Amino acid sequence: MKHTYKIAGMTCNNCKASVEKYLSEIAHVSEVSVNLEKGEAEVKMNKHISTDILQKALPEKYTLSEKNEKNVFASSSMSAMPMEEEKSKLQQLKPLLLIIFYIATASILLHYKGWSWSAFMLDFMGLFYIVFSFFKMLDLKGFPESFRMYDPLAKRVPFYGKVYPFIETALGLMFLMRFEINVALIITLIVLGITTIGVTKTLLDKKSIRCACLGTALKLPMTEATFIENAIMIIMAIIMLIS
């Protein structure tokens, strides 16, 4: 018999290999195939194995659950699910929203006595890059694998994913130090433009993968918020270049 399960917590090919290894070691499991992009595992077994047994075989970072199939007779009982999923999504995005809030607040406080929109935007962009690059630096080995899941350039050029945290750090310092601002703005448009294309494609394909905007330290789902986050930076860069 064959069953398909959702696996949360996988970020790279090493995770995929680990899940396949641990599940394959369970008695009566004959074959395991993991789809990293979909976050699913297809398990062939000689006799039924409960999800509890499968979950216990995996490290704590992975969460296994049965894949829900559509049931036309269960429409009434499923009506409340979108609200629950939305609540769960907001809870997962809480760290990202808090970080953006603090960055915006700090940028406002730096200029509240002598307000300047351009100075506010430059400091916001600088702090944004510095803070986000910090989280990526926490796992320089794991970040490239997560990043290449949706960034088109990182998929084709693995080295780009490795240097991306340092590019963000450099851009952050350029904005905060007011050094070659136009160059930093153009690079921002190129870098975030490429990432936004990948994010948009991921959202349109409705793939369930982890966003690497805050590295691998925090488990953030790829959602519309990731698109909005990049869009804010791109819009600010355009405004600054025009002005």
Rank of each mutant, 00 (worst) to 15 (best):
V34W: 02
T223L: 05
A212I: 12
F124S: 01
V199R: 02
E85V: 15
K87R: 13
I186K: 01
I167N: 04
A80W: 13
I194T: 13
V199N: 05
L58I: 06
T105L: 13
E84H: 11
I100A: 13
I187Q: 00
V191P: 06
S133I: 03
S79E: 11
I209G: 09
T51K: 07
F159M: 08
K47G: 08
E224Y: 13
L176R: 02
V34K: 00
F147C: 03
L203Q: 08
M177H: 08
N230F: 05
V199L: 04
D139Y: 00
T63P: 05
K61F: 11
K155C: 06
F179Y: 11
L214W: 00
E86H: 14
L97M: 11
L127G: 09
L173W: 00
F132W: 03
E37L: 14
D139F: 03
K155V: 05
L203C: 08
I103Q: 02
L96A: 07
W117C: 10
Y112H: 12
A154Q: 06
T200P: 07
T202D: 08
P221H: 05
K89P: 11
W115F: 14
C213V: 10
T4V: 14
S50K: 05
N68E: 15
T188W: 01
I26M: 01
Y22W: 00
S118K: 12
L36W: 02
S88P: 08
A212W: 00
I103C: 03
G193I: 07
E42K: 11
L110K: 06
I186D: 04
M149I: 10
E86Q: 13
A184D: 05
M45E: 06
T105Q: 09
L214R: 03
F124M: 00
I228N: 09
F179V: 13
R156M: 13
T195H: 04
Q91L: 14
A80M: 09
I242H: 06
T216A: 03
D52C: 07
V19G: 02
P152K: 00
T195S: 14
T188Q: 02
A74K: 10
K44Y: 10
Q91I: 15
L23T: 03
N71L: 05
W115K: 09
K6F: 09
K136F: 06
M45Q: 07
E40G: 06
L171V: 11
S76L: 13
P158I: 08
L127Q: 02
K136P: 06
V43R: 02
Y102V: 15
A106S: 12
V43L: 01
K16R: 08
M10C: 08
A225M: 12
L153V: 15
M222V: 11
A119E: 15
E25G: 04
T11Y: 00
L90S: 10
L97S: 09
Y102H: 09
A17S: 13
